[in-house]
Structures are given as structure tokens and as C-alpha cells.
Amino acid sequence: MFPKLDPILHSELRLAVISLLAGVESADFTYIKQQTGATAGNLSVQLDKLSAAGYITVEKGFKGKMPRTTCTLTPAGLEAFRKYIDALKEYISH
């Protein structure tokens, strides 16, 4: 019996965002957009879904006069990511 893949993570853009955030302490919205190649609208929707699942925190603020959105992976997000990778390894090894 294969383990179930987390549907929140099993989406190309959301998985890319979590993979990126797993390697940093925090990242700005623009950085994530540049690195994933996503459109601002789509990325914003996917970040909301990840945030609603408790996998990331999204902080909106200002740096000087410029608006700034910073995303950080939560411990729950890291744990879900770890389980997702373990599940993928199970799929591949069978």
C-alpha cells in the first residue's frame, strides 16, 4: 500500500515554493516569483493555500516606502515536506 501524497504539496508551483523555502530562512514574494517563474496572481493564490494549511507564514510589511511580503516555512510545513519526500521515495522504490 503506497502512502498518500499530501494534496497541498502535490502541485507543481506549491511544491516549488516549499522546496525553495526549505533552503532559506525567509524569502520575499518577488524572489519566489523570480525563482519559480510564476505569475504574481497565481503565486499569490498558491501562497494563500499554503498559508491556510499552516505550512508557511506570510508577513506583509514595508521596507521604507516599498511594500514587502516575506514568506517563511513553518515547522508543520517542514514536517509535511519531509513526509512528502519519504512518500515519493516509497513510490520510486516500488
Binding site: H10, E12, L15, A16, S19, L20, A22, G23, V24, Q35, T36, Y84, I85, L88, K89, Y91, I92
Partner: peptide, 22 residues
């Protein structure tokens, strides 16, 4: 996405991210 494609995406994203910061 297949399992292999997911793993490839994870690897590529992490590598690109690390390279960008360096």
C-alpha cells in the same frame, strides 16, 4: 506529476536557489 517528476522539481528548485544565493 509523477513521483520522479516531483523529486526532480524539488532537486532543481533547491539547487537553483542555493546557486542564486551564492
Amino acid at each position: 506529476m509523477t513521483a520522479s517528476e516531483s523529486l526532480a522539481l524539488i532537486t532543481e528548485t533547491m539547487n537553483n536557489n542555493s546557486k542564486e544565493i551564492i
